[in-house]
Amino acid sequence: MLKKLSIAALVVFLAIWPIFTTNPYYVHTAVMIGIMVILAVGLNLLFGYTGQISLAHATFYAIGAYATSLLEVHAGLSFWVTTPIAIIFAVIVAIFIGIPTLKLKDHYLALATLALCLVTTLFLLNAKWLTNGAEGVMGIQAPTIFGYPLQGVALYYFVALFTLIIFIMIRNLVNSRVGIALETIRENEEAAESLGVNVLYYKVMVFAISGALAAFAGSIYAHLTLFVSPESFALPLSIEVLVIIVVGGLASMAGSVVGAVVITLLPEFLYEFEEYRLLVYGVILLLVVIFAPKGIVGLFSSFVGFIRGKLSGEKVNEPEEAAEREQV
């Protein structure tokens, strides 16, 4: 009940706050948060739930941003046509790359996807005939809907709506037969397979889904900034998304959102440290891994559990303690 009320309150807040602001920078930041939530939800599905690390998230983000921009600038196609094309292209790339690489595990998978991420940056910088190199792609137009341009607050509502839809769909997915199967893959592939789960199929599908979401986010990004250049799609972006889900909470839907909000807003508070952004991420990551391995959401739920325990006088985490008692 309390949970439903607070979710309702949050939705209402997200729907009406732009009315009370005139500062376009806030709206821009809110759209950025939406983009990061979409990226994080996809990576959390892949890494948090299914246990497959990827440092190639920036690659799919780049595919979304560049494919839509280039098709628009050179072929004159609209956002509504280029975005599905970019998503399909990302899915195809994910499947082709996923089949060989997802047979790798842990560090090897991290290295393979890291390589993909670095190759992407080199490609964007050097394939000047296509990407215009370091100068980037200009001349992207804001998409229009019924003749009305999707920018500023309108773009915010568009992104908020799609972020919500994506969030609900992925939440449905993880709370289903498929979600359980994905977690068994993370926990023990051999056992998962022995229960009938086609492990490689699900790994490739989830890689494709997270790639598709990243491409969608990339398309939105391109139409927010109306300019794309290689540095926005380099390794730091992959790492940033990874930091978001670890800080927020792995295998937690709320974690993706909380992490995206915190990590996106952080530079606003620490902008003197802009140069050291990755260093700050490193320190945060280290602290979270050591002191709050389940992320902010994990900390919060243990805190709530603790308070509830105090209030009711009952023990916290009762079943686990029961198990420990039996062990003795």
Binding site: I168, M169, I170, N172, L173, S176, R177, V178, G179, I180, A181, E183, T184, A192, L195, G196, V197, M205, I209
Partner: peptide, 22 residues
């Protein structure tokens, strides 16, 4: 509970699309 639920995999059908659409 989740461990045991996982064992039901071969007897159930819900696939990605059905699951995501809830």
């Amino acid at each position: 509970l989740q461990n045991v639920m996982a064992g039901r995999y071969t007897k159930t059908k819900t696939e990605l699309g059905t699951a995501a659409l809830g």
